[in-house]
Design a protein around this nucleic acid. Structure first.
Lengths: 334, 334
DNA sequence: AGCGGTCGTCGAAGCGCTTCGACGATGGGG
DNA sequence: CCCCATCGTCGAAGCGCTTCGACGACCGCT
């Protein structure tokens, strides 16, 4: 492995000159640059990450904390992950993958050891113990999600309250007045994952504002969860004409259950789903959906982290506006 | 951030003593150890990863290369990833996440910069360009998968040929003689992902050996792919009584399509699927399946990497034996 | 002609850790 | 009783890089 001084010797310059060519932090003449770059290419030189980190106290690595045990759909998580990794690479950063189950210790380990420049944390809860821990680190962090007390922390997420309102507005625009929310699994609410409650609040508020008759129910896993949820909805809101489904896992069994019980979508029941586009179009009925912009959120999280690293002040919380895409699961009533 | 010399001063010993307490590479008296550990705890000392890497040329980081664009099911990939991350932590290592689309450059970057101690590479293809590149690195690597020429490289995977044979044996044991393989998407074959061809070869060989009538077809994405695949199977092998499905993505639309066309599982058609357990039990019909042991494979990959790092010789290729779990999708004929 | 200011480059001082050789202090064997 | 191991600890030399201060050379002014 050649070192920077091998390169310097080969190019007939000093180590510092090589370093400045690489970092661009001081002006170097075109000819010198060319000679240095040639030497680098010829020797196949790669700067040693550890040495660089030691001397500069920057690592070019981002930590990404992902949930391991999940009630939220795996493909969605993976979309966030790939968005973050891809975006990080555009800033010449790599991504160190931590799992949520390491809790606070994992954060402290990688931050304390100066393994990363910044942290991006997914799946934050209402009153997440990791938040105070993050505050104590010397590295900046960005949350994907929105805890109760987001003071002083950068947060990025979809605006779930607005999304719920938009779903209702869309259905109301098609003449629906009796609408039910099929929510995430009860476990998600209990854990205090705030996107669930933000969506629910948005749903309830918009329903009141629009003068709609609504009920909301969490929906447990599997066909059994779906059946139970539907039964409760039917009992509490007879002649419901539309469903807002904020639960990806429930989508397949839900459509199956409706089909089995002879209710056609959208003729008998309209559906607006909250899910990534590819899920919406991959089902037997192409669902009208509010997109979960995992890619945008992940990218924005990385950008925010980079701004923080550059000492730029950033808005504390960034909530992305919802987008509804009309497909085949929504009919009009009048 | 306290450094090792702060700790040394606080404990009244030299830096090297602190270092030896931490690494255990030289004997240190119990009293001294206690004093040092107390100082470490009190100061909240964390060794600086970069400095450590520079001095010792070991990073305690593993690179994991995952496929980004996938025809293989995302949850399965995620299972490998979590297995690798979890196993790595038991060896006090962290995981740097690379995506396959960076190709050879990504490997060379992290290896050249000494960011990682070893590499674990998923989704290797028949004649993967990354294999020669891996050979050139100074770090060892472990493949999850099996290329054509696995000489000199550590590989870990499920024994797909044996798995196929086992599936056929299971069905033959239930009296089935006319059996079709629903394979991965054509794209998977074209890309040269060898698990597909290994499975196919195992299927064909075992069919001959058992004297079965079989056909094999790849199965494109979505409901359309399934329909086409089934049509071809029915045309080429009338009165087929069982399906071996080696394609997770096809499972949902396949069951849907069978239901829609009035074929009951398992009364009219038996199915053995190749997929992780949770997928097999999460469908309308609980499928008899050959397990994809993502967790075991991931763990074994990490163990292999650690052995390699310790200079231990390891068997070049480790293929895990299949396990078939009987559920509700297989009926007997006689 | 003399002065200040860029520009391009160099030298050297660390960054925080590991590890090698050395060295007193014990202890056991001949 | 002496010698040689062994044990526990220390000092110092790097590991490969960044960065700060310095310093000629050269420019355009006055």
């Amino acid at each position: 492995m050649p070192t920077i001084s091998d390169v310097a010797r080969a190019a007939g310059v000093s180590m510092s000159t090589v370093s400045y060519v690489l970092s661009g932090r001081r002006p170097i003449s075109a000819e010198t640059q060319a000679r240095v770059k040639a030497a680098i290419a010829e020797l196949g030189y790669h700067p040693h990450a550890g040495a660089r980190a030691l001397a500069s106290s920057r690592t070019s690595v981002l930590a990404l904390v992902v949930p391991l045990r999940v009630d939220v759909s795996v493909p969605v998580i993976m979309q966030f992950v790939t968005a973050v990794v891809t975006a990080a690479r555009t800033y010449n950063h790599d991504v160190l993958l931590l799992t949520k189950d390491e809790g606070t210790a994992g954060l402290e380990r990688v931050a304390g050891a100066t393994m990363v420049d910044a942290l991006i944390v997914m799946d934050v809860e209402r009153d997440d113990v990791r938040i105070p821990a993050l505050g104590r680190l010397k590295q900046p962090s960005v949350l994907i999600g929105l805890p109760d007390d987001a003071a002083g922390i950068a947060c990025v997420d979809l605006d779930f309250a607005a999304t719920a309102a938009e779903c209702l507005r869309h259905l109301a625009g098609h003449g629906h007045r009796r609408i039910a929310l099929v929510g995430p699994s009860p476990a998600v609410y209990e854990r205090g994952t705030t996107y669930a409650s933000r969506f629910l609040t948005g749903f309830t508020d918009a329903a009141a504002e629009l003068g709609l008759d609504t009920v909301a129910h969490p929906c447990g896993p599997g066909a059994a969860g779906v059946r139970e949820c539907l039964a409760e909805i039917d009992a509490e809101l007879p002649e419901v004409s539309a469903l807002v489904v904020h639960n990806e896992e429930a989508l397949v069994p839900l459509l199956e259950e409706l089909r089995a019980s002879g209710r056609r979508v959208p003729e008998d029941l309209s559906i607006v789903a909250v899910c990534p586009r590819d899920v919406a179009v991959g089902l037997p009925v192409r669902l009208t959906s509010a997109d979960i912009p995992a890619h945008d959120v992940g990218t924005l999280a990385v950008e925010t982290a980079m701004n923080l690293l550059d000492g730029r002040r950033t808005p504390g919380t960034r909530l992305l506006a919802p987008t509804i895409v009309e497909r085949d699961s929504c009919s009009s009533r009048d």
